[in-house]
Simulated scan of single mutants.
Amino acid sequence: MPDPIPFPSRPQGDGSRRTDLGRRVTVRREALGLSRQELAERSGTAPTYIDYLEDRESAPGIGVMLRIADALQTTVPDLTGGTVDRPQGRGSALRDAGLRELGEDECRALLSPGGVGRVALIASDGPSVVPVNYLVADDEIVYRTASDTVPAAAAEATEVAFEVDHIDDAFSQGWSVLVVGEARRITDPDTIRELEPKARGLAWAGGERPLWLAISPRRITGRRIVNSLGTPLGGQARTLHAENGNPGESP
């Protein structure tokens, strides 16, 4: 292993604020369940360097970035935001890949952390699919929106679909979960008061979202890309949150 890279003696930039790079490193590290100490050991850097990288403005060299990206099982462009305007799934398919159907318990476990999903329905002007931030409460998919939006129209539809997925370009693997059910408006003040503290701040797209909706699942199905032995490629697949999601509406 190369000698650990120490804490930089001269900060790059003013060192007064966290950067997008630092946020992406933090999100990816936490998605893998790694501490800063463990990331430092894997990448051959000092723990204080990881502290600095995640919390302060910095400009690490390409050699350091390659080692950190490798330790985080991702790529430098993903960490630096170079892929933010590109669709996911650009990696090459692996030779021994296949699909495995997920059981309902597995699907619910993947849904449970909340994050970004997609509401699909037949709206007045035809089929629509819209990303929203969601949470799970009492086994229902819950999100909030404005009254004049496509997601709000879900309450008038006889049936809606809700999809969540994760794609890992580094390993050409991923999973998806599809929920089909009926949506309803949440009007009980006590229920809304319980949901409000769970909301993750303002909607990414801005604006007020006073209308709460819940989707009661009738059917939950899912699939995961696996290898020939039926196990996730590259080890246990892990879920990334809204940092890698679409800028939908926030609960």
Rank of each mutant, 00 (worst) to 15 (best):
R108H: 05
D168I: 00
E159V: 14
A152Y: 09
D168M: 05
E104N: 09
L195V: 00
R200H: 11
A153Q: 15
R100P: 07
L135Q: 11
Q88S: 10
D169L: 00
D168W: 03
S128A: 15
S176T: 14
L111R: 00
R200F: 14
L110N: 07
L111T: 02
G103L: 09
D96C: 01
E101M: 02
L178I: 08
F171K: 05
G114S: 02
P197S: 03
L202M: 03
D148W: 01
Y143F: 14
G126Q: 04
R100Q: 03
N133A: 12
Y134N: 07
W175N: 00
P77M: 04
T145R: 03
A152L: 03
G207R: 03
E163Y: 00
G91R: 13
P151V: 00
P77I: 00
D188C: 12
R86T: 15
E159Y: 02
V150A: 04
E194V: 04
P127G: 07
A205Y: 06
G81D: 15
N133M: 03
P77K: 01
V177E: 10
G89S: 06
S112E: 14
G126V: 11
R108K: 10
Y134E: 12
L110E: 07
T145N: 07
V179T: 13
E140D: 13
R200L: 12
I192S: 08
T83E: 13
G126T: 11
S176M: 11
G126D: 09
Q173V: 02
P197V: 00
L195Q: 00
L110D: 08
R100A: 12
G206P: 00
I122R: 14
